[in-house]
Simulated assay, not measured.
Amino acid sequence: MASSDRELTAPVDLCRPDGRLDPAAVGWSRRPLHRANLHGWGRTKRWEYWCVAAPTHLVALTVSDLDFLALNSVHVLRWDGPAGSTRPWETERTSLAPFGRGVALPEAIAGSKGSQGLGESGTDVVVGPERPTGGRVRVEILGEPGGTRLRARCVAPDGRPVEVDVFAALPDGHETLSVVVPWDERRFQYTSKHTARPARGTLRIGDETLAFGEADDAWAVLDHGRGRWPRKVHWNWGAASGRTDGRTLGLQFGGRWTVGTGTTENALCVDGRLTRIGEELSWSYDLADPLAPWTVRTPDSDRVDLVFTPFHDRRTRTEAGLLANRTDQCFGHYRGGVRAEDGSRIAVHDLFGWAEDVRMRW
């Protein structure tokens, strides 16, 4: 198989006509170039995950098709300040659709409308009823000039309506990390991770309205995934966005699931320019105490040397037949230093983001 360290610069299909991984698709790029032409079932997973964070609150939207089940969710987290000094408030609503009914995810990034050179394959995504009740949710991912419109509606478990309307900008020339992770020709994942996308909009919870981006301090992160997965998998994911040391910085870190594949999903986005990190990261944390500090480092260089201090653990434990999920998604702040592609060192001061440990059977 071709080296997965090569940089791709032209559009490419993910799969060959027989559904196996096309060796020409193996590599990484600074903008989305892959058409995820997956066919049928067979451990096929598709999802769009957006998280938009301001200094005191965030909202995360998920639309996913896992073959036998679709999960669409709205997650809201609030806290009082950067230190997370008071107990955060959290609500989440997830709608399940057996066999993915009503969920059709496109071959390219939802809402992209061809802005990344992929024609019109990145069509809009709309799931759920216009006015959801009970445990149902509505999520819209819509392409607009200059970025993506994110809208969502649901009713929180405490009975308050929740409405989201946010625009996640994609400035001209803003680079992102897209990469194919190949276990073999039948098991592979295409992921496109976007960090530090400026965001602006509102989150309404009952009669209260919370703003994103009034002081240019809100950021959107995208996890776009298409692939065919092993039955069981264990991964780390960390991300953060914001301004620090006079720079606009996005952190994109992964681990465990890429070991042995010849590639990583690690990168920095510095003032819109991507720094690719081709080495595996060293993650250190204690799941018996997930709110204790985590460390994330590049063991063979000084590219990444960070301590992540969480203040909240979004803890999920699911046993539902074919699906089992053990997730600790911890939210907090990164401190330390990173080194950009040009060799400059950037001091990281209280950059908000998350780090997670996920074990899936699906």
Rank of each mutant, 00 (worst) to 15 (best):
W41F: 13
W41P: 13
W41H: 12
W41V: 12
R43D: 12
R43N: 10
T44R: 12
T44S: 11
R46S: 13
R46I: 11
Y49P: 05
Y49S: 04
W50Q: 00
C51I: 11
V52W: 00
V52D: 00
A53P: 03
A53L: 13
A53W: 05
A53N: 05
A54I: 04
A54E: 03
A54S: 04
A54H: 00
T56Y: 07
H57W: 00
V59P: 00
A60E: 06
A60F: 08
A60P: 07
A60T: 07
L61Q: 04
L61A: 05
L61P: 00
L61M: 05
V63L: 01
V63T: 02
S64P: 01
S64R: 01
D65C: 08
L66E: 09
D67L: 13
D67N: 12
D67V: 10
F68C: 14
F68I: 15
F68T: 15
L69F: 11
L69S: 09
A70K: 01
A70D: 01
A70N: 03
A70Y: 01
L71K: 11
N72Y: 05
N72L: 06
S73H: 05
S73K: 04
S73V: 02
S73A: 07
V74M: 10
V76C: 03
L77K: 08
L77R: 12
L77F: 11
L77I: 13
L77S: 14
L77D: 06
R78C: 13
W79S: 11
W79K: 07
D80H: 15
G81P: 06
G81A: 08
G81T: 09
